[in-house]
């Protein structure tokens, strides 16, 4: 858990001389679940594109597994750091699901057999078997999202960068995607998830990065971050509702302040019932 997988030192990036990322430094340890937050245009997507090697930083360095990732090693970076785009449509290029998932592994120069194997695994992992011969343009939003995750999964990266995975999904599909994220993490993958959903970030992440105007303005556990009012305001964030309610309960002395905060409404309800002496039958 403590092994540093990815290290970013003094990363800056500009589009047409307009600075988008300013002097970002941080390190990511293996197996972390990180939520990346910040208002639109704060630089999250650009940050991801840099980590993945699509964009080359103007200044600063990226180390992966202790090795510096320069221009030459970009290909290696893409193997180890996968990027799932927000809009699945922007990612899907092939005309059927199997071919689509094969695109990444094919580019890695694997043998056809190996590619077919990986595609099969990814299809099973995301339960896409029924859809594998279908073209992406006749898939639903949730299905497209799953295919776009399978795309990256088949490349077997160690780190997943996932941009707004739940955007534009209905609650059921969002729930499905969330479960997939938990599962990936349990299997040892490191996740960086860009999101606007504070409730999700609060229950999911063990670390939150907050971007504002191209700067990394906060880095800490969800509890720490969501209590920094100044940061929240600058990044246009709101406190997670479970946290708001739980703090009110503490203040009203209805629950004790000790111990960990509940992460979901379900957990909160359970704790409350426990404290008030009503036990589940």
């Amino acid at each position: 858990m403590d092994e540093v997988l990815l290290e970013v030192k003094g990363l800056s990036f500009s589009y047409d001389k307009k600075p988008v990322l300013k002097n970002i430094s941080l390190s990511v340890r293996r197996g972390e679940k990180i939520a990346v937050m910040g208002s639109n245009g704060a630089g999250k997507s650009t940050f991801f594109l840099n980590l993945n090697g699509v964009l080359q930083a103007g200044q600063g360095e990226i180390f992966f597994n202790g090795k510096r990732a320069g221009k030459k090693e970009r290909k290696g970076l893409q193997r180890s750091v996968g990027f799932v785009f927000q809009d699945a449509d922007s990612q899907l290029i092939a005309s059927n699901v199997r071919a689509e998932i094969s695109f990444g592994p094919m580019n890695m120069g694997l043998s056809k057999q190996e590619v077919a194997e990986r595609v099969k695994e990814a299809i099973e992992y995301l339960s896409l078997s029924d859809l594998q011969d279908r073209p992406p343009h006749y898939l639903s939003g949730g299905e497209k999202k799953r295919v776009s995750i399978a795309d990256i999964l088949a490349m077997k990266p160690e780190i997943f960068l996932i941009d707004e995975p739940m955007a534009a999904l209905d609650p059921m599909n969002a729930e499905k995607v969330e479960q997939i994220l938990y599962r990936l993490n349990k299997e040892g993958k490191t996740l960086l998830v860009a999101t606007h959903d504070v409730d999700f970030a609060y229950r999911f992440a063990d670390r939150v990065l907050v971007f504002s105007d191209g700067c990394l303005i906060a880095d800490g556990t969800p509890q720490e971050i969501f209590n920094l009012e100044e940061v929240m305001e600058r990044a246009h964030l709101k406190k997670p509702s479970v946290m708001v309610i739980w703090e009110a309960l503490i203040k009203a002395r209805l629950v004790g302040g000790e111990g960990e905060y509940p992460l979901t409404s379900g957990q909160a309800a359970e704790k409350i019932l426990e404290l008030s002496g009503v036990f589940k039958e």
């Binding site: 594109l49 699509v54 290909k75 893409q78 990027f83 785009f85 990612q91 290029i93 990444g104 990256i152």
Partner: peptide, 10 residues
């Protein structure tokens, strides 16, 4: 964007 997405997968 789509070109970035292509690059991101090598």
């Amino acid at each position: 964007t789509y070109y970035d997405a292509l690059l991101a997968r090598g």
